[in-house]
């Protein structure tokens, strides 16, 4: 369980307040108008932005000031999720050992992860040789070997077409369920949110609200969200 306890997140001059709990193994959409602070919330959880006051707790353990690498978090960004000069196998292996020194056992894990996301046989390819969908799959394979309790998505599939994006979201949903992880996903598209999340956090007017049922929020949106959804 992730808890933001009276937290105020600083992003330049902007401040976002959050006092909420994300239940373990839930799938949560982060919804709200552009520029309201959806990414700010995610980045603070990942440790890229400072929590000015308040606390951030994971299963009761304080992680407010932890280094990004020691947090129970794997994150996919909008782009730049792979190192262009490394092969797919190496990119995935980074999730196990950042120095790329792998035991035979680790090697098996890497192969299994690539196999799981449908990229068996692509071990020696480099990101430049792949399609957008394949690159997303490779990044997901790394998330898989990272075995973190939480997966944060900051619209990593925004550049993909609708069908491919749906395919990726389904894969994410499956992987999160298989690994008993918690998913937090920034989304611009209500369809995406409906597709794989059960809860939704509304970020608007400088606040991140407590999570509520995704369907309910989207079916009966408060005025600020209605205006955004159109």
């Amino acid at each position: 369980m992730l808890r933001l306890d009276d937290a105020v997140i600083a992003n330049g001059a902007f401040r976002l307040q959050a006092d909420l709990e994300i239940p373990a193994q839930s799938k949560v959409a982060v919804i709200g108008p552009s520029g309201a602070g959806k990414s700010t919330l995610i980045e603070a959880i990942a440790g890229f932005l400072p929590v000015e006051t308040g606390h951030l707790l994971w299963n009761g353990r304080e992680i407010t000031n932890d280094h990004p690498s020691t947090r129970p978090v794997a994150m996919l960004f909008q782009d730049g999720n792979l190192f262009q000069h490394l092969t797919l196998a190496q990119n995935v292996a980074l999730g196990l050992h950042p120095d790329l020194r792998l035991s035979p056992d680790d090697q098996k894990k890497v192969d299994a992860a690539l196999d799981r996301v449908g990229l068996a046989g692509f071990e020696r390819r480099k990101p430049a040789d792949l399609s957008g969908g394949q690159r997303s799959r490779a990044a997901l394979a790394r998330v898989l070997v990272q075995r973190r309790g939480m997966l944060l998505l900051d619209e990593p599939f925004a550049a993909l077409g609708p069908a491919l994006r749906a395919e990726m979201l389904d894969l994410v949903s499956e992987l999160v369920s298989e690994t008993s992880a918690t998913l937090l996903m920034v989304s611009h598209d209500p369809q995406d949110a409906r597709r794989i999340t059960n809860l939704a956090v509304l970020v608007a007017e400088g606040r991140a609200a407590k999570p509520v049922d995704t369907e309910q929020l989207l079916n009966n949106p408060p005025p600020v969200l209605r205006k955004y959804l159109g």
Binding site: A46, G47, F48, H67, P68, S69, T70, R71, V73, A74, M75, F77, Q78, D79, G80, N81, F83, L94, G95, P98, D99, Q146
Partner: peptide, 11 residues
Amino acid sequence: ERFRLAAQLGV
């Protein structure tokens, strides 16, 4: 993103 990714992986 590169630096963020590196930080997250604890390289």
